[in-house]
Simulated scan of single mutants.
Amino acid sequence: MRGWALVLAVAMTLGTGAAARADEVQRTWDAAWVFVPAEGAAGYARRRVAELAAHLAENPPRALVVYAHGCDGLSEISAATGRFLAQAGVLMVAPDSFARQDKPVSCDPRIPRGGLHRAVLGWRQDEMRFAADRLRALAPDLPLILMGQSEGGITTATLPDIGADARVIEGWTCHAGWPEYRGLKARQGQPVLSLVGEEDPWFRLPVLHGDCGAFMQGPTQRSIVYRAPSHLAGKHWLSADRGVQRTILDFIDAIPTDRGHRHGDNQDD
């Protein structure tokens, strides 16, 4: 009897832990920043995730972006990204990782230094996957793009295939000492755009040198490295630049709009 009691206690503990983790991820979705295309001088509007279903039914955008913020949370970088995407007709949802009740610090942006919470990558992947699932359920026929900057870029690069139509990786090299942080998990043929400055101060360690192009396959996957004398060579936030914004929007424009064609589905099956 004692053995069965122990098994039951462990099972209950594991179940409670799983429920707690699900609640934490739900919080990141509930607190997400949402930017939608809108008429008027601004060209965008802010919404809550609770308003997404009604908004998408009445005002379908050209595409959907799930955006993963950097290690210091939602910021002006996130807001500026949401604005330029929405002004171009793309809806962006950015889950708030810091809405979790338990959120260890994973970086010190003043130095800059990352890698303070190795397990954060799995947490961020859960957040992105959860948001993508919600958006796909609300608008199954729209292109869905994964996009992230810095720690969010790592998340975008390493998330296993979830059926998204493309990935945009900003401020990451795809090179790391920790194996789960290294490489690119995009399926073959999935459009990928990666953007990095060759002299980005976050990637001074030799193990971080390089770019995501080392892991790419085929013409739909492109790595852009900004080198001196470009003013972007030493930048970490690249999409503040209007030229980089144009590059991202051109990439989104080139994503096939037919879902069956994008995923290579056999329409005769």
Results as ranks from 00 to 15, higher is better:
residue 144 L to D: 02
residue 100 R to N: 11
residue 117 H to V: 04
residue 125 Q to F: 07
residue 68 A to S: 15
residue 132 A to L: 04
residue 99 A to G: 04
residue 61 P to L: 02
residue 106 S to N: 13
residue 81 T to A: 06
residue 140 P to W: 01
residue 93 V to Q: 05
residue 66 V to L: 10
residue 140 P to M: 05
residue 143 P to R: 08
residue 117 H to W: 15
residue 79 A to E: 12
residue 140 P to L: 08
residue 135 L to F: 02
residue 119 A to W: 11
residue 136 R to V: 10
residue 101 Q to F: 10
residue 88 A to P: 03
residue 107 C to D: 00
residue 136 R to S: 12
residue 73 G to M: 05
residue 119 A to Q: 14
residue 102 D to L: 12
residue 89 G to P: 00
residue 102 D to F: 14
residue 102 D to V: 14
residue 76 E to P: 11
residue 99 A to T: 01
residue 88 A to C: 11
residue 64 L to C: 03
residue 95 P to G: 00
residue 125 Q to V: 15
residue 67 Y to H: 11
residue 85 L to F: 13
residue 142 L to C: 00
residue 64 L to F: 05
residue 71 C to V: 09
residue 114 G to W: 07
residue 109 P to M: 09
residue 143 P to F: 09
residue 141 D to N: 14
residue 146 L to E: 08
residue 141 D to R: 14
residue 123 W to H: 13
residue 121 L to W: 08
residue 85 L to W: 06
residue 96 D to W: 10
residue 94 A to H: 03
residue 68 A to Y: 05
residue 104 P to K: 01
residue 142 L to D: 01
residue 98 F to W: 14
residue 129 R to Q: 12
residue 148 G to Y: 02
residue 106 S to F: 06
residue 61 P to K: 02
residue 116 L to G: 06
residue 84 F to Q: 10
residue 148 G to N: 00
residue 79 A to N: 07
residue 76 E to A: 13
residue 61 P to D: 03
residue 76 E to I: 12
residue 74 L to H: 03
residue 136 R to Y: 09
residue 118 R to Y: 09
residue 110 R to Y: 12
residue 127 E to K: 07
residue 84 F to G: 04
residue 127 E to T: 02
residue 95 P to C: 04
residue 146 L to F: 05
residue 63 A to G: 01
residue 124 R to T: 13
residue 138 L to A: 03
residue 76 E to M: 12
